[in-house]
Amino acid sequence: MASSAGGDEAGALVLEVNRQRVVARADVGAPLLSVLRGLGLTGAKRACGQGECGACTVLLDGQAVMSCMLLAAEVGTRAVTTVEGLADSCADLRAAFADRGAFQCGFCTPGHIVRAEALLRDGKATDETQVRKALSGNICRCTGYTAIVDAVLDTAARRQGAS
């Protein structure tokens, strides 16, 4: 059976966000980013709205995606995790960002944190070349990237050592 969003049902949308079931009112064309921000989760940023910069990155079933290019009504039962939902569990990564100077203005930082945390969890933050390529969907206009790459590699090494 096909499921459908829109028409008479337009408005009520049930999502799982940061392990909580939430009900949002949204037009069928609303991107996930708008819905999340409407819920007060303003960590994901609208910097381009075109899927080109990564500032709106969230996890969808653990996979980093651009929330500005994903219709909220397309999410379905998949779990959405925002930077707010990750912040506690990646305190080490965040501290590494602070120690390395991996943010300046901070606007791209939530997206970078989410993307980097997904990379770390996948065990793919193994060397500088790989990390640089993997982070290339996230633009940072301030830092010139070196500090971000180092923060991610530091965290990978620490977690490797701890495990």
Partner: peptide, 21 residues
């Protein structure tokens, strides 16, 4: 000294408030 930026916790957790927030 290489102290952490004073706003680091807010900026790395998505809780720093920009105008559009």
């Amino acid at each position: 000294r290489r102290v952490r930026p004073v706003d680091w916790e807010a900026k790395t957790s998505g809780t720093a408030i920009y105008a559009a927030d």
